[in-house]
């Protein structure tokens, strides 16, 4: 996986950022009408999407039971007979990671081991997810504890209060501290909470600041804001990633999360990555989709591709 060492905060760059929402909306709308994949291409793309999913459960009622079920599904995301029919049975298709609360990391570690998926990364949300409205010290502490429990990726939220007041210096310092808490071996994914940021210009600025502070991924949302992973937001963030790459040479990953539920959506996001960043950004080391129900829809589509029939929900393992 690529690693982003970050850079000094460059406020000139940040302040120069400007995003034209209507123009972004137009590009986002037409991009999807300009690209589509059909038949075998669609099947292959959907399988690739599966490998990029951060299969997620982030609920108040999460217990060992549903985390375990999630982990087994993560190791066997598509029914084996379907994979076999597509000639991909021996490919070792799994999701990109599982994503849970820090309190459930331990359950995930054990479950993945049981399921034979110990290699699947475990992402833990941290830093007072989803609102981030907890003292900074406890946020750092949560990161360390999650890593101690076996998390290999940390999804943090930025302080939207600082972003909204334009205190990008402070935002930068906080993320940098989180990065330090993660160390070099644990991937830092920074959630911008884009739905709270008010403007796409703020989204772009937050993306830059998060990358300058060393985030390995930038992620749209917690799934709990009013507006989550929309195409215009995604387009804005991947453009920031592209500019950061051009200026620094560091590749930062992108994770849209929240509201991505259909197989068609997942192909659209892959197309966005391909068009705006290139094929390299269509792999799990630089692209993740944060989702829970998406996998079921992809599996249904693949069932249809293989059998020519639409599946009933009960035919696929939940």
């Amino acid at each position: 996986m690529a690693y982003n060492p970050g850079m000094e905060l460059d406020m000139g760059w940040v302040n120069g950022a400007v995003v034209d929402l209507p123009a972004v909306n137009r590009r986002a709308a037409t991009l999807l009408t300009k690209r589509t994949v059909k038949k075998s291409w669609q099947a292959a793309w959907l399988l690739r999407a599966v490998t990029c999913i951060d299969l997620t459960t982030l609920s108040g009622d999460d217990t060992v039971t549903n985390v375990q079920r999630l982990c087994f599904k993560a190791c066997n995301p598509i029914r084996q007979d379907l994979l076999d029919a597509m000639g991909m049975g021996d490919y070792g298709i799994t999701v990109g990671a599982v994503c849970v609360y820090s309190a459930r990391v331990k359950d995930a570690v054990q479950s993945l081991k049981q399921a034979g998926g110990a290699a699947i990364p475990i992402a833990s949300v941290a830093t007072g997810f989803p609102a981030g409205q907890v003292p900074f010290e406890t946020r750092l502490k949560e990161i360390s504890m999650a890593i101690g429990l076996g998390a290999t990726e940390i999804d943090i939220v930025i302080s939207r209060d600082l972003a909204l007041s334009g205190d990008w210096g402070k935002v930068y310092e906080e993320i940098k501290a989180c990065k330090a808490a993660c160390g070099e071996n644990v991937h830092l994914k920074t959630i911008l909470g884009t739905g709270d940021l008010g403007t796409l210009t703020n989204v772009y600025k937050a993306s830059l600041v998060a990358m300058m502070a060393g985030s390995d991924f930038i992620k749209t949302s917690t799934g709990k804001e009013g507006v989550n992973a929309t195409m215009p937001v995604g387009l804005t963030m991947v453009r920031a990633i592209r500019e950061y790459f051009h200026k620094t040479g560091f590749k930062v990953g992108f994770k849209p999360a929240g509201g991505i539920r259909t197989a068609k959506d997942s192909c659209a996001w892959l197309a966005l990555m391909k068009e705006e960043l290139g094929d390299e950004w269509m792999r799990a080391d630089l692209f993740r989709i944060g989702a829970s129900s998406l996998l079921t829809d992809i599996e249904r589509q693949l069932y249809h591709f293989v059998t020519g029939r639409y599946a009933a929900a009960h035919q696929l393992p939940m």
């Binding site: 690209r35 059909k38 075998s40 291409w41 292959a44 597509m86 991909m88 892959l270 094929d279």
Partner: peptide, 21 residues
């Protein structure tokens, strides 16, 4: 689903190309 399809999907999975639409 014959072997041809399998190799085709594997190829596309690896190179993530667009196909005809």
């Amino acid at each position: 689903m014959a072997g041809n399809l399998g190799s085709e999907i594997r190829r596309i999975f690896d190179n993530m190309e667009y196909g005809p639409a």
